[in-house]
Design a protein around this nucleic acid. Structure first.
Length: 482
RNA sequence: GCUCCGGUAGUGUAGUCCGGCCAAUCAUUUCGGCCUUUCGAGCCGAAGACUCGGGUUCAAAUCCCGGCCGGAGCACCA
């Protein structure tokens, strides 16, 4: 064996074996909802390898179950949209349900080579055989007989549930999960995309294996739940004389802030009205991240740092937020937003107008905010104040509290003092603002300038970063992070 | 039950293949300090890990055996 020199701490993704001449890689979702953060990992890492080595990145919709994993017609487009947004525009997009035609001749060839047989066992019956390692009576059928039965599956003579096409592996394989697996079954229910064009549908192991070959896939990265799939598919490849791609598995990803989630569970919750939609800030979809002002670059960096370990991991959004903060902090204008607003009456010469910088470190000019003798401050800030105490209203003036109930104060000069407590405020006639958060919502009052920030990420001072998504009354912003 | 696969700080990750340069990398997190007209950013500092037990070896996170813990698969789902 050749010794490779000690590699320097490699940034980014670990090297892929056999990738030097370029790679063909795919991400193959079932489109039954929009991409989640879990999908984002698959999209980002696969496409990143293609960027690194050159080659082709393919999105393949594995939508071959019209019933149990019923695809959602809108979701196909959502995937492409989110891929593009994630900086992972596919070089090729294919949809399995539109390519079933191509699978039939391969099935036939497989039968000719003696690699598959039509099996009429009932499901439970076959499971029994499988568990005990016994070959069923159908396994010994001749090629001719199998071809004939296959035809009858296709032409409708054989009814749904009465037969499957099974790939021969080894009924004595030590792992029962690998023994003769089904490649095609009959489904008469219409498919949401192609209707009743086909009645014989491939199962994932067959469809995926065949497509990987047809597309020239060189490397597969997939969840370890599909680890046994490889062992099954290798038999198919052997029968057909194909070469199996290299495979990497990764563990399941859980996110502290969202717990474990699945697209189908989300779908149910959304249909039940628990969430406002697929971009609700409480939901772990790519589009929700986008609406909250999370940048694709932050997601990419994070997912690439995760690498491709086989352990199940439990991550925290904090790391994504930290990445994102680095990106948006310089871009985001500062604005005042007062949650749980309390009116404060101030006596004296409070300036009628405040001048506050749009950004504390980068000179982008100032914003003018109407002030005066009546302002809003946060209830929690008021709670921390006592009569007689001095405090500075940020970018405006100093005040001295007269009483907290009712909230009254008097003007105490404009000079910025040393180490005085500083709080922010909002004008008496400021617009209502609602912030939707992953953990609830905050209602309050903001400065009028927020309505100029539609579609942009801003920092509500002393609150956090948000994206302004609607500027009609009330203004609606989605919370990103602190 | 059967069959696979994993286990490095709170979280993730590098190092494991090919033992020494590892009293273990980076990020995040938490806590201090400085700075600051934000509880943000920045700067400085600190905290915190090789699952356990044996074995091999001059030398083990790294190799071997066993235990423990965790995960996955065992569908006419993807």
């Amino acid at each position: 064996m050749q010794l490779s020199e000690k590699k320097e701490p490699d940034k980014g993704l670990p090297a892929l074996e056999g990738a030097e001449g370029g790679v063909v890689m795919r991400f193959a979702p079932n489109p039954n909802g929009p991409p989640t953060l879990g999908s984002a990992r698959g999209i980002i890492v696969n496409s990143e390898y293609v960027k690194k080595y050159g080659g082709k990145f393919i999105i393949r919709f594995d939508d071959t179950d019209p019933v149990k994993k019923r695809p959602m017609p809108e979701a196909y487009g959502w995937y492409l949209e989110d891929c593009r947004w994630l900086g992972a525009k596919p070089d090729m997009v294919i949809t399995a349900s539109e390519r079933v035609e191509q699978y039939y001749p391969i099935a036939e060839e497989l039968i000719r080579r003696g690699g598959a047989y039509v099996c009429g066992c009932a499901q439970a019956e076959f499971k029994e055989h499988k568990d005990r390692g016994i070959e069923c009576q159908h396994r010994g059928r001749s090629v001719e007989e199998n071809l004939d039965l296959w035809q009858r599956m296709l032409d409708g003579t054989v009814a749904e549930g009465e037969a499957v096409l099974r790939v021969k592996t080894d009924m004595h394989h030590k792992d029962p999960a690998i023994r003769d697996w089904p490649a095609f079954r009959i489904v008469t229910a219409p498919h949401p995309l192609v209707g009743d064009k086909y009645r014989v549908w491939p199962l994932l192991d067959f469809e995926s294996a065949v497509e990987d070959h047809l597309l020239g896939t060189t490397h597969i990265i997939r969840g370890k739940d599909l680890a046994d799939s490889g062992s099954r598919q290798r038999y198919l490849y052997e029968h057909l004389g194909w070469q199996y791609p290299r495979v990497i598995h990764w563990g399941r990803i859980k996110i502290h802030q969202f717990g474990s989630f699945s697209t189908s569970k989300l779908r149910k919750a959304i249909e039940a009205g628990e969430y406002s939609g697929w971009d609700d800030p409480r939901v772990p979809t790519v589009r929700a991240m986008r609406c909250r002002g999370i940048r694709a670059e932050a997601l990419r960096k994070f997912m690439i740092d995760l690498g491709v370990g086989e352990t199940d991991i439990s991550i925290s959004m904090d790391s994504i937020y930290a990445e994102n903060r680095k990106i948006i902090d310089p871009e985001a204008n500062r604005r005042f937003f007062v949650w749980e607003p309390v009116a404060l009456e101030i006596e004296g010469d409070v300036p009628a107008l405040a001048h506050a910088p749009l950004h504390p470190a980068i000179d982008r000019g100032v914003r003018e905010i109407p002030a005066g003798n009546r302002l809003f401050i946060c209830k929690s800030d008021l709670a921390g104040l006592k009569a007689g105490e001095g405090v500075r209203l940020k970018d405006l003036c100093n005040i001295e509290i007269i009483s907290t109930e009712p909230a009254r104060a008097r003007f105490a000069g404009k000079d910025v003092g040393k180490r005085t407590k500083i709080i922010h405020w909002a004008p008496a006639d400021g617009p209502k603002v609602r912030v939707l958060r992953p953990d609830g919502m905050d209602d309050g009052v903001g400065e009028a300038g927020i309505s100029q920030e539609l579609g942009r990420v801003v920092q509500f001072e002393r609150y956090g970063f948000v994206q302004v998504n609607s500027v009609s009354e009330p203004i609606v912003a989605y919370f990103a992070h602190r």
